[in-house]
């Protein structure tokens, strides 16, 4: 059964049916089979965070997932966030704060931030640094990434308060 197996998977709202070899990593499936190269591959052992995507809503390392495990799953990648003309609030915050240089770590940072905004209080910069500690960046020195997450978290709070008021 190391033969290819048919899986159905929803990626960024699009349904796909593909044959996958059991050993195919989700990261390679996204990049090579679906052509979604927004998910970057750094270390392939869970350490760098560049390949982080959302699987059924939770952030996960796509290099530590087998595509074959994801029959019926919903996957979201950086491509699903926004477009060049209509950036997702987290993308906009990264843009506003100059939170990237080469951009290699950025997709993983974005997807991690989205999960953090839901699960972590992000009450102070220490929370943000702790939350991002599993994502390595070799360029920015992290300062601007922390500022971007701060901005995204503050905006979300404002949006939620507005919702509660109206």
């Amino acid at each position: 059964m190391s033969e290819p197996v048919l899986i159905r998977i929803t990626v960024n709202g699009v349904d796909y049916e593909r044959s996958v070899e059991p050993r195919l990593l989700l990261s390679d499936f996204l990049r090579n089979d679906l052509g979604l190269t927004g998910t970057h591959v750094g270390c392939e052992h869970g350490v760098c965070g560049a390949c982080t995507v959302l699987v059924n809503g939770d952030s996960a390392r796509s290099c530590l997932f087998l595509a074959i495990q994801l029959d019926g799953a919903i996957v979201e990648t950086a491509e699903g966030l926004g477009t060049a003309h209509a950036l997702h609030p987290v993308q906009k915050a990264f843009h506003d704060c100059h939170a990237l240089q080469c951009g290699f770590c950025t997709p993983g940072m974005l997807m991690t931030t989205i999960d953090l905004l839901r699960k972590s209080p992000l009450a102070n910069d220490e929370d943000i640094r702790e939350g991002l500690s599993g994502n390595l960046c070799r360029c920015t020195g992290y300062q601007n990434i922390v500022r971007a997450v701060r901005q995204a978290a503050d905006e979300l709070k404002v949006a939620q308060t507005d919702e509660a008021v109206s």
């Binding site: 059964m1 059991p22 050993r23 990593l25 392939e44 052992h45 869970g46 390392r61 290099c63 530590l64 997932f65 087998l66 495990q69």
Partner: peptide, 26 residues
């Protein structure tokens, strides 16, 4: 057995292990 895969998958990616079959309990 593969559970979360967070220790097993790195070992497979490094080819430190060569199991004949992965048994997924998820």
């Amino acid at each position: 057995i593969i559970a979360g895969g967070q220790s097993l998958m790195p070992m497979l990616n490094f080819r430190l292990l060569r199991p004949s079959i992965l048994i997924d309990i998820n």
